[in-house]
Design a protein around this nucleic acid. Structure first.
Lengths: 345, 345
DNA sequence: CTGAAAGCGCTTACAG
DNA sequence: CTGAAAGCGCTTACAG
C-alpha cells in the first residue's frame, strides 16, 4: 500500500472497452484512431462504452506502434520574454487538438544542445519545433528523423523542413526609417556575436536602409554576447565613446532594456541624448516605467503558425512551407522626440 | 520513401545490444536500469556494446512497464516572468539526471484545468509538479495517482504530497516593515481575488505587521483580478480616491509594474507621492528604467527544490516534506525615499 | 465491415 | 550471477 503503484494499476484498457461493447479489440482501436472501416453502429457502441468506463488511451502504448501525440519544443532559453509569446501561440493552436507540447530548453542561450534533440527523439515525439540558432546541416539531419519546423532560422531554399520567420530584413529597415524620420542620423546597430540568420537579416536590413538614405558613413554594427556583464560593457563603451551615436537599434528588447539602463546610469536622457529601438515588442516594453519603441514580430502568431505547419506535416504534407510575417513598429517614448533637430528645423 | 517512417525504423534495441554483447536481453535491461545482480564483467561488456551500437533506450517502451523518466509540470500561466525562474530552477536540477520535464500551461491564469492533469497522467509522467492555485481535494486525488509536489500551495499538514513554498507570511511582514521604516504609514495591499493560500498568507503577514506597529486603522486589502484592464481600473480608483495610500504593496511584481504605470500616467511620482513594493523580484524589477522594490522568493531555488523532492519521492520516499524558503527584500527606487517625512523629522 | 494474432521495446517475476 | 518467457496497451497487416 505504501509502494508506488504499477503504471497500469486498475487502468481501463481497450480490452475492457472491447468486452463491454462486445466487439474486438481491433475495432476499438479503429474507433479510437478514427480509422477507416467501422460501421456507425459499432462506432456508437464503442464510444458509449469508452465514456461509460472512462477509458483514456495510454500514450506510451500508442507510442510503441504509432504516434505519441506529443510535440517536442526546443528553445534556446526561456528567460527572454519573447519566448513566452511563442509558447503561448503554440499552446493556443494545440489546445483544441489532442496534441501536447513538451518543452526542452538549453541552459545556454547561444546554442541548442544535441543531447536535447536526442532526448526528444527518444521520447518518440511526433514532431519537433526548434527555435533559434542551429546549423543547417544539423537541422537537415534531424528532419530526416522527425517532422520539423523551425522558428527564427531563415532558410527559404530548404525542402526538408518548414520555416516560420519574421521578415527580419524588413525589421532592420523599419527601425532605421523610423529613426531617420525622427531626425536621428548617427544610428548604430547593437547586434549579436555568433549570430544566426535572423541576425544577419536584421543587420542587412539596417545597412541597406542606412545606405539608401545616404548614411553609409554612419553604418556601425557592434556585436556582443548576450551575457549581462558583456552587454553593460558594450553599452557603456558605445555611450561613453568620443563618437556617441544618437540612436541605437538593438537586435532584441532584452538588450535594449539594458542599454537604456546603462544610459540612464550615465546620466544620459532617452530619447533626448540617445534614442533606443528594440526588437520583439515584448510585454515589458510598456511595463512599469518602461517605454521602449520596438519592432513587433508577433511571437504568438509565429508560434501558432509553427504548430499549424507541424500538424499538417505530420498529417502527410511533404513539400516545405516557408512562412514569413511582416513586422510593424510600435512607437513609444524611447525614440519619440528629437529636440535638437526640432529646434534646428 | 515519402511515407513517414515507422517509429522504430532501424532502431537499435536491447535485443541488438544483447546479441552483440552475447548476453541475454534481461541482462541488458538490468545494466540499463543499474539494477541489482549483474557481474562487473557483464556490465562492462554490455556498456561497450551499447556505446558501440549507439543504443538509446526507447522511452515509450520503458513507459509501458516502468518509468518514463519524464516529469509533468503544470503551470497556470507562462506569462508571469516569475515562472521562467521556476522553470529554470527545475531544469537545472534535472539537467544531470535522466529526467526531463514536460510543461503544460493553462490558458487561464486563474486555475489549473483538470484536462491538463489528465493529459499528463495519460502520458505516464513519473511525477507531477503543480504550480499555483488548485483545491486541496483535487490535489489529494492526484497524489493518489502520481507522486506530487506543489509550488505555491501552503498545506503544511498534508501527508500526501510535498509542498515547496516561499514564507509568504514573512513576505507580507517584510514589505510592511520596510515601508514603515521609510516613513510610510497608509499602506494598502493590492491582492488577488479568488486567491490561493499564498495570497492569504501574504495578506495576513501584511495585516499582522500593520497591527503590530499600531497601524491597524490603515489596514486595507483591495483584491482584484489579474486581467490587465481590471488592474488599471483598480489602480486608478486607489490612486485617484480621496484617501490615497502613501504606499502600495502588490501581491506580485507583474501587478506592481502596472500600478507604477498607472501612477505615472496620473502624474504621480514614485516613490515621492506613492511608494510601490512588489513581490517575486523578477528580472524586470531593474530592467530598463524600472526600479521596483520587491520581495525575492528565489523562483530558481523553489524550482530546484521541487525537482529534488519529486525525484526522492519517486525513488520511494513516502513521508511528506514541506520546504519553505525565507524571502528577503530587495530595495530599489520605488520605495527608497520619503521626502515629506524626511523634511518633518 | 469485423476480428484473431503478431509484434512494438522494454521490465519483471521466476527458475536455474 | 544469468536467462527464457510472459506481458505492458496499443496498432497493423491480414484473413474472413
Amino acid at each position: 500500500m505504501k509502494k508506488p503503484e504499477g503504471a497500469t494499476a486498475g487502468r481501463v484498457t481497450i480490452r475492457h472497452v472491447a468486452a463491454d461493447a462486445e466487439v474486438s479489440v481491433a475495432a476499438v482501436s479503429k474507433v479510437l484512431r478514427e480509422a477507416y472501416g467501422v460501421s456507425d453502429t459499432m462506432r456508437t457502441k464503442v464510444r458509449l462504452s469508452m465514456a461509460k468506463l472512462g477509458y483514456r488511451p495510454h500514450t506510451a502504448a500508442r507510442g510503441m506502434r504509432g504516434q505519441t501525440f506529443t510535440f517536442g519544443l526546443i528553445f534556446p532559453d526561456i528567460r527572454n520574454p519573447f519566448f513566452a509569446d511563442l509558447l503561448h501561440g503554440i499552446h493556443s493552436e494545440l489546445e483544441p487538438t489532442q496534441y501536447q507540447a513538451l518543452l526542452g530548453t538549453s541552459q545556454s542561450a547561444e546554442t541548442i544542445e544535441p543531447a536535447l534533440v536526442d532526448s526528444m527523439i527518444d521520447r518518440q515525439m511526433d514532431g519537433l519545433i526548434i527555435v533559434g540558432a542551429i546549423d543547417q546541416e544539423q537541422l537537415s539531419q534531424i528532419s530526416r528523423r522527425k517532422p520539423l519546423v523551425t522558428i527564427g532560422n531563415h532558410d527559404p531554399k530548404t525542402r526538408e523542413y518548414d520555416t516560420v520567420n519574421n521578415d527580419d530584413r524588413a525589421a532592420g529597415s523599419l527601425a532605421v526609417r523610423h529613426l531617420i524620420e525622427n531626425g536621428y542620423r548617427k544610428i548604430t546597430m547593437l547586434s549579436l556575436l555568433a549570430g544566426s540568420t535572423i541576425i544577419w537579416e536584421r543587420e542587412s536590413g539596417y545597412r541597406d536602409e542606412m545606405i539608401r538614405h545616404g548614411l553609409g558613413s554612419f553604418v556601425n554594427v557592434v556585436a556582443g554576447s548576450q551575457a549581462r556583464p558583456d552587454v553593460q560593457t558594450t553599452a557603456r563603451r558605445l555611450l561613453e565613446g568620443p563618437d556617441r551615436p544618437d540612436a541605437i537599434f538593438c537586435w532584441t528588447d532584452f538588450i535594449a532594456m539594458q542599454v537604456i539602463g546603462a544610459a540612464t546610469e550615465l546620466g544620459l536622457r532617452v530619447p533626448e541624448d540617445v534614442a533606443i529601438v528594440g526588437h520583439d515588442n515584448i510585454q515589458d516594453c510598456d511595463f512599469g516605467q518602461n517605454s521602449l519603441t520596438s519592432i513587433d514580430q508577433s511571437g504568438e502568431l509565429l508560434g501558432r503558425e509553427a504548430a499549424r505547419l507541424l500538424i499538417s506535416r505530420i498529417r502527410g504534407r511533404v513539400d516545405a512551407k516557408h512562412f514569413v510575417v511582416t513586422p510593424r513598429i510600435v512607437l513609444r517614448g524611447s525614440s519619440r522626440f528629437r529636440p535638437s533637430t526640432d529646434v534646428v528645423s
